[in-house]
Design a binder for these strands. Structure first.
Length: 616
RNA sequence: GGGGCGGUAGCUCAAUUGGUUAGAGUACCGGACUGUCGAUCCGGUGGUUGCGGGUUCGAGUCCCGUCCGCCUCGCCA
């Protein structure tokens, strides 16, 4: 084999005159019959033009060139020379070409179902289903190679940063104990213990805490996590986290370390200097943006106008406000009226669009969305104008309205109105064109800490308390005493306790989340009590952790970053499958390997399993 | 589990109100061509319209079911 001396992206003017060997794939063939053939040779480093020149070398070399087709794998030897037909500025190697003297076909290809071309004729890539089936062909596209390279760089920067800061990279088991709260788990049967099962970890949460008890001090892992829930455009059932944990810290130390990491990562990946990150409480985020991961790159903030709305003679508002009126403020079941003022919306948001909003908010459980315009003459128009008219001055003052603005109203219980308003705000922002392009295209990267999450929330179905983050999340340091002393039935106090948790939000997307963990047994017992776990039940589920914590646990805390989402930001895609080498479909299938697939009866028998699935 | 969109040549798409032999570009095959770089020019092969039913004189088109993919609600501590 003609082993390469260079790759296909590195030859320049300075190599002219040298004899070189290149290996790669035939990217395109441009023939000129009996005399001259051009072939672009591709590897992941670039393209180099090869020339088969009949004048210099006689017809034999052209016979060989004629046999080559797109995606054949070849090795060539030849001489570098300045291009005879002028340079091609589109290629890094565009000043030179290699005059081929020897060709070796390393691997002849079948006609591929599609060519790995980032700019195919017609401008559209083959559909994703086909590209996933032939993933190895799709990954040959330069842009996919670029993504894989960026991902590799991001994980290297990650390891460098945390290694420099004293973290140990430690692997934790993939076959693990089932702890069935949280996401649905993937299960793996045990051959040695008939009827018993492993679970694949939703995250290495408990192991990393135990590593702190084990004296590892600082732990890092770039790990695979598994959650058997329906995927989305930005979510796979099998995904990667940058997972870490630190000993002898409180919230500030973890946040400082994370911010340093984000700063380093963005500098190296995007050349962007991350400014000091602002902090916002969960409550403020919910009030102003209706979501716990607010996109603060634009305004359109949500206002609570419940008091004003109560005085309006409008049935929809009155009915909503009557709900749970005796409940405390921010109670999820207390009625509220929320408003979003849209500057310039009167003109831009047509009836058709606002009708669409009414439909849109229904998907989040809201009944609809009332609309009013303040026209260019300063007159309230359309929708519910007549109900607002008697309170016009107050409405204008409360929402800071100017002629030409529009207001969208949501009236419902707090949880529904807030969520619907938050989602609607983002949709309106897209429609109004006020969302900046992602940072990879020059727009701002907007980082934000969200802190002071409630420790507990009521489960929608059962009505029981559930941990908002997970049951090992500590209360904020100044809240621990009040928490331990609060009676279980003291709804208002329990609901007001905030945790020592923190999320990093980037442009409205949660990219990391974590917390300081409980290392105090009184606090941990109280959490279990609230969650309705008896000491026996807690012991059965988490005995290994509780036992570990009882043998000298250092105060500790940690965080996990969603690696796939980080990479999506650096490559500028909104499709998570683009940043995973071998992704799965929405039904968890791998279209290349055709997993999942049936297994033999013998395999099942060995695992003491019988399938009850019946073929239709 | 619910809602929406899609599936026509290897690929990207078209096909009037249900109406002749389902077309185009590209890929592929053959031919021409000595400076191309999305090469060009000429010719050709290529179809179970995802699958199964139904309505109709007639179905790519309408109806029912089903499979697959995507988006989304629920779900994702």
């Amino acid at each position: 084999m003609l082993i390469r001396t260079h790759n296909c992206g590195e030859l320049r003017d300075k190599h002219v005159g040298q004899t070189v060997r290149l290996n790669g794939w035939v990217n395109s063939y441009r023939g000129h019959g009996t005399g001259l053939v051009f072939i672009d040779l591709r590897d992941r480093f670039g393209l180099t033009q090869l020339v088969f020149d009949g004048e210099d070398l006689g017809p034999a070399i052209l016979d060989q060139a004629d046999k080559l087709r797109n995606e054949d794998v070849v090795a060539v030897e030849g001489t570098v020379r300045v291009r005879g037909g002028g340079p091609n500025p589109k290629l890094l190697t565009g000043n030179i070409e290699v005059v081929v003297t020897k060709v070796e076909v390393l691997s002849k290809t079948e006609v591929p179902p599609f060519l790995p071309d980032d700019n195919p004729t017609g401008g559209k890539l083959p559909n994703e289903e086909l590209r996933l089936k032939y993933r190895y062909l799709d990954l040959r596209r330069p842009s996919m190679q670029n993504i894989l390279a960026k991902r590799a760089k991001a994980t290297k920067v990650t390891r460098d940063y945390f290694y420099e800061n004293g973290f140990l990279e430690i692997e934790t088991p993939v076959l693990y104990k089932s702890t069935p709260e949280g996401a649905r788990e993937f299960l793996v049967p045990s051959r040695h213990q008939p009827g018993e099962w492993y679970a694949l970890p939703q995250s290495p949460q408990l192991f990393k805490q135990i590593l702190m008890v084990a004296g590892c001090d600082r732990y890092l892992q770039i790990c695979r996590c598994f959650r058997d829930e329906d995927p989305r455009a930005d979510r796979q059932s099998e995904f990667s986290q940058i997972d870490l944990e630190m000993s002898f810290v409180r919230r500030e130390q973890v946040m400082e370390m994370m911010e340093g990491f984000v700063r380093r990562l963005w500098k190296e990946m995007a050349g962007f200097e991350v400014p000091p990150m602002q902090r916002m409480t969960y409550r403020e985020a919910m009030e102003r943006y209706g979501i716990d991961r607010p996109d603060t790159r634009y305004g359109l903030e949500i206002r609570d106008i419940s008091e004003l709305a109560a005085r309006m003679d409008f049935g929809v508002f009155k009915d909503a406000l009557a709900k749970g009126a005796d409940r405390p403020k921010f109670s999820s079941r207390r009625g509220v009226v929320k408003a979003i003022a849209v500057p310039g919306g009167a003109e831009k948001l047509t009836r058709k669009i606002t009708d669409g909003y009414a439909e849109y908010v229904k998907t989040f459980g809201a009944g609809g969305c009332a609309v009013v315009k303040l026209n260019a003459q300063g007159v309230l128009e359309t929708g519910i104008a007549k109900f607002l008219e008697p309170h016009k001055a107050e409405v204008i003052a409360a929402l800071g309205l100017k002629p030409g603005d529009m207001v969208l109203f949501l009236a419902d219980v707090y949880s529904v109105a807030t969520k619907a308003a938050g989602e609607l705000r983002q949709k309106v922002a897209r429609d109004m064109g006020v969302v900046p392009r992602p940072g990879s295209e020059g727009g701002p990267w907007n980082f934000l800490w969200v802190i002071d999450f409630p420790m507990f929330e009521r489960d929608k179905e059962s009505g029981r308390w559930i941990a908002m983050h997970h049951p090992f999340t500590a209360p904020r340091d100044d809240q621990a005493e009040a928490f331990v002393n609060a009676p279980v039935e003291d709804e208002e106090t329990i609901a007001s306790i905030v945790s020592a948790g923190y999320d990093i939000v980037l442009n409205g997307q949660e990219i990391a989340g974590g917390s300081v963990r409980i290392h105090d047994r009184a606090v941990q017992s109280k959490v279990f009590q609230l969650l309705g776990l008896s000491p026996e039940q807690a012991k059965e589920k988490f005995s290994f952790l509780l036992e570990a914590l009882s043998y000298g646990a250092p105060p500790h805390g940690g965080v996990a970053f969603g690696l796939d989402r980080l990479i999506m930001n650096f490559v500028g895609t909104d499709n998570i499958r683009d940043v995973i080498a071998f992704p799965k479909t929405q039904t968890g299938a791998d279209l290349m390997t055709l997993a999942p697939s049936p297994v033999t009866e013998a395999q099942l028998k060995e695992l003491y399993i019988k399938s009850t699935y019946e073929k239709k």
